[in-house]
């Protein structure tokens, strides 16, 4: 074990971790927006659009992110849609994550009984109020554990960004292994930084899941 080496290259990993985190967070934000949009469309059963949304969900859930990224990064420029690597990474993560988020939100909406909606209507609430005060609060608390699981999943998936030459943690580790043959140190730093990124979210997820279970939701 070479501590000097670790100290020397720590800043490189820090930079890479920040990039991973930045792309991950932006990508997940877009994924949440897409997911919410899709879930609402499916909930209200909007004709035609709901078919497109369903097709999107199947397409994105049944293909790997790596393949999606290659298509976005190398394929799309050939028909004139060219962007930089960072935008491609975010777009890929949002495309993949959107469907996963949609599924977790949809299961939340499904968990709210029809009777809740009817009771709200009989109390004289309009459809906005029903959504805002009755359905959303219950749906959200059911979908929170699934949502956090998706966040972890998507943060993990960012590890393939190195394939489209983004300087993320994987890229840095592979680069350093190739340059200096300090395999053990590079791998330890890699694992350490991923733990640093993922462990807090994972612990939060476990805690929330327990809370939701106590609250009697999600049974």
């Amino acid at each position: 074990m070479n501590w000097e080496y670790i100290q020397k290259y720590l800043p490189m990993y820090e930079k890479a971790a920040i990039l991973t985190l930045k792309l991950g967070v932006i990508g997940i934000l877009f994924a949440v927006l897409i997911g919410l949009f899709c879930a609402v469309i499916l909930y209200y059963k909007v004709p035609v659009v709901k078919r497109i949304v369903a097709a999107y969900i199947e397409l994105s859930r049944n293909t790997p992110l790596l393949v999606q990224l290659f298509f976005i990064y190398y394929g799309l420029p050939k028909i004139g849609i060219a962007t930089n690597a960072e935008a491609c990474g975010i777009a890929g993560l949002a495309f993949l994550g959107g469907s996963y988020m949609a599924e977790s939100f949809r299961s939340g909406f499904e968990a709210v009984d029809k009777i809740q909606e009817e009771s709200a209507a009989s109390l004289g609430m309009n459809s906005y109020q029903t959504m805002r005060y009755v359905i959303l609060p219950q749906a959200v608390s059911v979908s929170v554990p699934g949502f956090l699981a998706n966040v972890i999943f998507l943060l993990k998936e960012t590890s393939v960004f190195s394939a489209i030459s983004l300087m993320d943690l994987m890229f840095t580790a592979k680069d350093l292994i190739g340059l200096y043959y300090k395999t053990t140190e590079s791998l330890i730093l890699l694992v350490g930084f991923y733990l640093l990124l993922l462990l807090p979210v994972s612990l939060l997820g476990m805690w929330v899941e327990r809370r939701v279970r106590y609250a009697g939701f999600g049974t």
Binding site: I152, K156, E157, T158, S159, V160, M170, A173, K174, I177, T183, T184, L187, L190, V191, Y194, L195, L198, L199, S202
Partner: peptide
């Protein structure tokens, strides 16, 4: 279980592919 599940699969692949040679 937690270690395997929290690590990206690519990291695990790197650990086995590059790490086992060194270790």
């Amino acid at each position: 279980l937690e270690f395997i599940r929290i690590m990206p699969q690519l990291v695990l692949l790197f650990m086995v592919f590059f790490g086992s040679t060194r270790m």
